[in-house]
Amino acid sequence: LRLEVKLGQGCFGEVWMGTWNGTTRVAIKTLKPGTMSPEAFLQEAQVMKKLRHEKLVQLYAVVSEEPIYIVTEYMSKGSLLDFLKGETGKYLRLPQLVDMAAQIASGMAYVERMNYVHRDLRAANILVGENLVCKVADFGLARLIEDNEYTARQGAKFPIKWTAPEAALYGRFTIKSDVWSFGILLTELTTKGRVPYPGMVNREVLDQVERGYRMPCPPECPESLHDLMCQCWRKEPEERPTFEYLQAFL
């Protein structure tokens, strides 16, 4: 395994491009020591290896001592969030954005069929390849993070704006909380990567959403798509659509 080009840095580690087995181009995620327990990670990795779908980033291998390494397929255009905010983002029109959403829903419909939960679905965790191919990455890892700023769910590192209220408040993460996050991801797509709930801080978002506030229809977004977002944001988790439905609708 060779680490060649550093692609990015996040709160919990770095991402590199490299070569595996001398020939395969891969992405390598390294986790800061202390982010998660190697034992817990190894268990999760076994499950992650079983998830194989064309719209999920394929896991190739893991190094399960500290520092933990995760070796996955390489996606040339990086994260969907950076892609939307970058040069190419300007030229993306609604049909392409909807197609990308459908690809993500397709990957998540598979996660749904496998009775698995992602827990951290957002544009930053979707990767883009050639020809606007989108794949879901980092599934299941969020559960293992041991950082206090994260586990408190009120901490600075927790993605509260993407998280369903029952998950943020009571830790009830299910495929239905993933559906909520998918609704937020749809706003990221239609606004080219704007942060959700602009002008609001995490605490406010939690309070307002509890009181029934939902983001309005983004500019140039059809009402039918906003309606779909609002279905994803129904207060009762069981009233939210399935990913199978979302995939078919898109």
Rank of each mutant, 00 (worst) to 15 (best):
R2P: 07
E4A: 15
V5N: 14
K6V: 15
G8D: 06
Q9T: 05
G10W: 01
G10H: 03
G10T: 00
F12C: 02
F12Q: 02
G13V: 00
T19G: 13
W20E: 15
W20C: 15
N21V: 13
G22E: 10
V26N: 06
V26G: 08
I28Y: 10
L31P: 15
K32P: 01
T35A: 12
S37I: 04
E44S: 02
E44T: 01
E44F: 03
A45E: 03
Q46R: 06
V47N: 04
V47G: 02
V47T: 11
K49Q: 06
L51N: 07
L51M: 06
R52T: 13
R52P: 07
K55P: 05
A61H: 14
S64D: 05
P67I: 04
Y69S: 03
I70C: 04
M75T: 04
K77D: 08
S79I: 02
S79F: 02
D82N: 08
F83V: 14
G86F: 12
E87T: 13
T88R: 11
T88N: 11
R93D: 05
L94D: 05
P95G: 09
A105L: 08
Y110Q: 07
V111I: 08
E112R: 15
Y116A: 13
Y116L: 06
V117R: 00
V117Y: 01
D120H: 04
R122T: 02
A124P: 04
A124C: 07
L127I: 07
G129M: 11
E130Y: 14
V136H: 02
A137N: 03
D138F: 00
D138H: 00
D147V: 06
Y150K: 02
A152C: 07
A152W: 04
R153G: 11
R153M: 06
G155T: 05
A156F: 08
A156N: 05
K157W: 09
A164N: 01
A164H: 01
A164C: 14
P165M: 14
P165D: 00
G171E: 00
G171I: 04
R172S: 13
R172Y: 07
R172E: 04
R172M: 05
R172P: 06
F173Y: 07
F173G: 03
T174Q: 14
I175D: 14
I175H: 15
G183I: 00
I184F: 03
L185E: 02
L185G: 04
E188M: 01
E188T: 02
T191A: 09
P196A: 04
P198M: 08
G199C: 15
M200I: 05
V201G: 15
V201W: 09
N202M: 06
N202I: 07
R203A: 09
E204L: 08
L206R: 02
Q208N: 12
V209Y: 06
G212A: 06
G212M: 04
M215L: 11
M215I: 11
M215V: 06
P218D: 07
C221T: 09
P222Q: 06
H226W: 10
M229Q: 09
M229N: 07
R234I: 08
E236L: 13
P237S: 12
E239L: 12
E239W: 15
R240M: 00
R240G: 00
P241I: 13
F243Q: 05
Y245L: 12
L246T: 06
L246D: 03
Q247L: 09
L250S: 06
